[in-house]
């Protein structure tokens, strides 16, 4: 196990370096550099201003110096400075991550719990009316983009019923109920998005597990059906779901862009979009790296969790 962990950590480090290289490469293609962007405001900038600014920002260095300088800084926890906000990036990212997690964590918890219930109900009676109804709901869930369901929610709950606010701005120091009130719609949209996938996985793996001899044995020795399903079968049926949960964390980091945009919510996703619109390259590089790194770590945790949960799996 320790050997496996060490191997995975080394692989993770290598992947992170690869990710940083890929981001740097793609961002280098961006037409014009940051100096052009900043000086755009002063149309009649004098001849020397451009070169001086490039030198000040370190953009006159060769690409490898810029790349390895950036990599070195990241490894030391220095994510650089945002041009557009004129502030260090790390605190901004941490704050935005906090906002995004306030959406993602409740959505993840709710969708995991709901998907287990729905998946099990569907799996107990495959092809029944209930199963078909759940299939239709989940199919609709994967077919409706977050910004469409978000707009519909706003129309119904904010405009027509006037139960909930249409934008989700948070301020510190407000109580739990205020947050629940403000975040209800974005969390519901995110939940719908990830619920479908999780339910489908739980359903199909539960159906497989219910066919196994040990479940039949448990039933034949007279244990109540409910106990067999929820105690014996569910534990094994949950294994594939664990992987999908990690996949969902990554998906949420991306899907959250749309939800945040619909509800004008100041999270990580809208920060990425802001940096693209403002052509703020340091902010774009840093926030992309942050998201991708989070995704990799979530995947690693899922794999490790899988090994811990399932003693049959022993990685070499």
């Amino acid at each position: 196990m320790l050997k496996y962990l060490i191997r995975r950590m080394v692989l993770l480090a290598m992947t992170l370096v690869g990710i940083s290289a890929m981001i740097f490469l793609i961002v280098q293609i961006l037409p014009g550099d940051a100096a052009d962007q900043i000086l755009e405001a002063w149309v009649e900038s004098e001849g020397g201003a451009h070169d001086q600014l490039r030198a000040q920002l370190g953009l006159d260095r060769p690409w490898y110096e810029q790349y390895f300088g950036w990599l070195w800084d990241i490894m030391h926890g220095d994510l650089g400075r945002s041009f557009a906000m004129d502030a260090p990036i790390a605190p901004i990212l941490v704050e935005r991550l906090g906002f995004s997690l306030r959406l993602a964590i409740p959505a993840l918890l709710i969708s995991v719990m709901l998907s287990i219930v729905l998946g099990v109900i569907a799996a107990i009676r495959p092809n029944s009316f209930v199963d078909n109804a759940i299939t239709v709901i989940t199919l609709t869930g994967v077919s409706v983009p977050a910004f469409v369901s978000g707009s519909l929610f706003i129309l119904i709950f904010a405009a027509w019923l006037q139960w909930l606010p249409s934008t989700s701005s948070l301020s510190e120091g407000e109580g739990f109920f205020h947050w629940a009130y403000v975040l209800a719609m974005p969390v519901a949209v995110l939940t719908l998005e990830s619920l479908a996938h999780l339910t489908r996985i739980t359903r199909s793996s539960m159906i497989e597990v219910l066919k196994t001899p040990y479940v039949r044995t448990a039933r034949l020795k007279g244990l109540p059906k409910r106990l067999v399903i929820y105690k014996h079968a569910l534990r094994n049926a949950m294994l594939p779901t664990v992987t999908v949960i990690a996949f969902n964390i990554g998906w949420m980091l991306g899907g959250v862009v749309l939800v945040e945009q619909v509800f004008s919510y100041p999270g990580l996703g809208s920060l990425v979009l802001f940096s693209i619109e403002q052509r703020d390259t340091p902010l774009l590089q840093a926030s992309m790296f942050f998201v991708a790194a989070g995704y990799c770590v979530a995947n690693l945790l899922a794999d490790v969790g899988y090994v811990l949960l399932d003693p049959r799996i022993r990685y070499s």
């Binding site: 992947t15 990710i19 981001i23 793609i26 961002v27 990554g250 998906w251 980091l253 991306g254 899907g255 862009v257 749309l258 990425v272 979009l273 693209i276 774009l284 992309m288 998201v291 991708a292 995704y295 990799c296 995947n299």
Partner: peptide, 11 residues
């Protein structure tokens, strides 16, 4: 290792 939408946005 990038969520699909974010990679597309970056490109």
């Amino acid at each position: 290792s990038f969520p699909g939408l974010l990679l597309a946005m970056l490109v």
